[in-house]
């Protein structure tokens, strides 16, 4: 029987790279889509607001696992076969976009209404108001919850194993199936997750403190 040694440990470490890659891709694409939905959610056009609110409501109300099943098994039943990595990236991006849209909408709305009035009174367009006045303030406000969400994302990527993608979690399970040294293996897997998430959690808390300090005047 195979035992848990260096080759297995390296295999798990390499798979951690896939977890990171998946997190980065989902966060990047999810940010762009989520940012657009946050702005749409605050649009003056009612149909655009409703469309964005509907999207966010639906995605937040179903398990991300279901989105993953839909994009992998659901689409393949319709004849569209996505490779596991693509299905996983797309599903997680959709999940990220709905949550970031809500976090960022809240951040934009927490910039005082008077800032919009002052900006409009200085003859700025709506786009200029966002670009020069509202977003710089909203981004500062949004940093702690955004980084906090990123921590959740790192852990939640583990669901992609259900479509056969080998991430950190799946790698641990594969090695366990071959060696049955579950305790050592999952200690290592847990330690890697911790090594990724702990600094991010600290960063989020640090940002929160910095924000609170700069807002008390």
């Amino acid at each position: 029987m195979q035992t848990f040694g260096w080759p297995e440990a390296l295999f798990i470490l390499r798979s951690a790279g896939w977890t990171l890659a998946l997190t980065a891709i989902a966060f990047f694409i999810g940010s762009i889509v989520g940012g657009a939905f946050a702005i749409m959610r605050l649009s003056r056009l009612r149909w655009l607001r409703r469309f964005a609110a509907g999207y966010i409501l639906v995605i937040q109300s179903i398990p991300v696992l279901m989105v993953l099943f839909m994009s992998y098994y659901g689409l393949s039943a319709l004849g569209i076969e996505l490779p596991p990595f693509l299905a996983a990236s797309a599903s997680l991006s959709i999940y990220v976009s709905a949550y970031l849209a809500e976090i960022w909408r809240g951040s934009i709305e927490s910039v005082p209404r008077q800032q919009w009035e002052a900006s409009a009174s200085l003859a700025h367009t709506t786009a200029q108001t966002y670009r020069h006045v509202i977003l710089p303030q909203a981004i500062r406000i949004s940093l702690p919850p955004t980084v906090g969400f990123l921590v959740q994302l790192v852990k939640n990527t583990s669901i992609v194993q259900v479509v056969g993608f080998v991430d950190l979690m799946r790698a641990g399970m594969l090695v366990n199936n071959a060696t049955y040294q579950a305790f050592q293996i999952f200690t290592l897997v847990g330690a890697i997750y911790f090594a990724i998430c702990f600094p991010l959690s600290r960063l989020s808390r640090h940002l929160e403190k910095v924000m609170n300090a700069s807002r008390s005047h």
């Binding site: 002052a118 900006s119 020069h132 006045v133 303030q137």
Partner: peptide
């Protein structure tokens, strides 16, 4: 031009 009670300078 308009000047408001709460100044409304851009804090950033």
């Amino acid at each position: 031009g308009i000047v408001f009670q709460s100044y409304n300078l851009f804090p950033h």
